[in-house]
């Protein structure tokens, strides 16, 4: 039955399968058991035997640290995937000889392979900061497909730090869905020889800006 099966790098699955998996992965790390593991444990001794212990009260600093740790773990999974995936796309490319070459490769070939389009705008300050703008970031667009999205036209600049809709229907927040991609991009670039930190900013609708700060460059 598999006589016509394509070679490994050409095989495909339904995009919805990845969406469903990603939703569960995000939930596990940020809102589920994978997040709980990083919240300080509740004292287990309950003297009178029937009162439940109060939920742990975290100081704002502890809560922020726990949240950062859960995001770091999810980013780590993305990093791992990006690192391994880029090897497959870059397998026939010669070694990139500059940071810009590597970033361009990620904006085109890697983006195409993962997000099925190219990055719309690439800007750099020539001091190790690259800003990759995707006007219709696929993973936001699909997760929020049933929500009204304002589509920014090419080149449109969204208001910086614009508030994006809150949690809906157990999917978490849109911000949750850019954590994994930050790791993915960082893992890919690191594998191509560019050590960096990657952060994301959702600029309204499905527009997303990824900032790549090269470390020690």
């Amino acid at each position: 039955m598999n006589s016509a099966r394509p070679p490994p790098h050409k095989r495909q699955v339904a995009e919805s399968s990845l969406d469903f998996l990603m939703m569960q992965v995000v939930t596990y790390f940020l809102h589920g058991p994978g997040a709980a593991a990083y919240v300080p444990p509740v004292p287990s001794a309950v003297p009178d035997g029937n009162a439940l212990p109060p939920p742990p009260l975290l100081s704002p600093a502890d809560a922020a640290a726990a949240a950062a740790e859960t995001r770091r773990r999810l980013e780590g999974v993305g990093y791992d995937v990006g690192h391994r995936l880029v090897e497959r796309y870059a397998v026939e490319k010669e070694r990139m000889d500059s940071d810009l070459e590597a970033v361009k490769f990620v904006c085109r070939d890697f983006w195409e392979g993962v997000f099925k389009k190219h990055v719309d705008v690439l800007r750099t300050n020539h001091k190790g900061l690259y800003v990759l703008t995707d006007n219709k970031f696929r993973w936001l667009g699909r997760v929020w497909a049933d929500e009204d999205s304002e589509e920014g036209g090419a080149g449109a600049v969204g208001a910086d730090g614009a508030e994006v809709g809150g949690a809906i229907g157990g999917r978490g927040k849109p911000e949750d869905y850019v954590v994994f991609p930050c790791g993915l991009i960082c893992g890919a670039l690191t594998r191509l020889g560019v050590r960096c930190r990657v952060t994301a900013e959702i600029a309204g609708g499905a527009q997303c800006k990824f900032s790549v700060q090269v470390i020690g460059g």
């Binding site: 495909q12 699955v13 399968s17 990845l18 998996l21 992965v25 994978g34």
Partner: peptide
């Protein structure tokens, strides 16, 4: 049905699932 649906590379799904399972084994 498969022909009509939007698709992604099977590698992306496999690597994502694999990295996730690895983290579960650690956790």
């Amino acid at each position: 049905a498969f022909e009509r649906t939007d698709k992604v590379s099977a590698e992306l799904l496999a690597l994502t699932y694999g990295s996730f399972v690895r983290q579960l084994l650690i956790d």
